[in-house]
């Protein structure tokens, strides 16, 4: 399977889309691949949404802005609606159904929904829906090795051991959901 990942992660500010992007980018760094991470920083952020583009590739990366993602992580309805039509054919969309009540299909695109925010709340790790969705995406499309992904989580979320534990639980929840 081609592991080239061109991912868009989108949600409200505070849902951790930029952070989730950083975890994925760090996994690429650990595997010594070409990596780019590009946040939205323009007027759309003022509207309360935040998104980022992440590319993991074996070739030098052109524009870091992902226009036709082969993977979309949608943390809320406006992001799902906005980015679903941009997903490339054969691509995969992972959406948090707790936040995206109206899932739609798109031709040639696999849409997977899990109630990530709700699962987190039930597991006592509220606010880690972003990491659950990374796990779910990885299970459907293993864009990097499992060790690299876990290592990335430890690097990015590892400053507080208690938080890292919760993040690990979230990743596993997603992988098994």
């Amino acid at each position: 399977m081609d592991r080239e990942l061109q991912c868009v992660i989108a949600g409200f500010g505070g849902q951790g889309s930029l952070f989730a992007g950083k975890v994925i980018a760090t996994a690429g760094l650990i595997e010594d691949r070409e990596v780019s991470w590009m946040p939205s920083y323009g007027p759309e952020m003022r509207g309360g949404t935040a998104n980022c583009s992440v590319t993991l590739s074996d070739e030098p990366i052109g524009s870091p802005l992902v226009l036709h993602p082969n993977a979309l992580i949608a943390l809320n309805q406006p992001s799902f609606d906005k980015f679903l039509p941009t997903v490339a054919e054969g691509g995969i969309v992972v959406a948090d159904t707790a936040m995206v009540p109206e899932l739609r299909e798109a031709p040639g695109v696999t849409v997977v929904g899990i109630p990530a925010a709700k699962l987190c709340e039930e597991a006592g790790i509220k606010g880690l829906g972003n990491i659950v969705l990374i796990g779910k995406l990885w299970a459907a499309f293993p864009f990097c090795g499992q060790e690299a992904l876990e290592g990335a989580l430890a690097q990015v979320a590892g400053k507080k051991p208690a938080m890292l534990e919760k993040n690990k639980i979230a990743l596993e929840l997603g992988m098994k959901a």
Binding site: A25, V35, S36, P39, I61, S63, P64
Partner: peptide
């Protein structure tokens, strides 16, 4: 430019 300034790469 803003793209290069804001993006992360290894």
């Amino acid at each position: 430019d803003g793209m290069l300034g804001q993006m992360m790469e290894p």
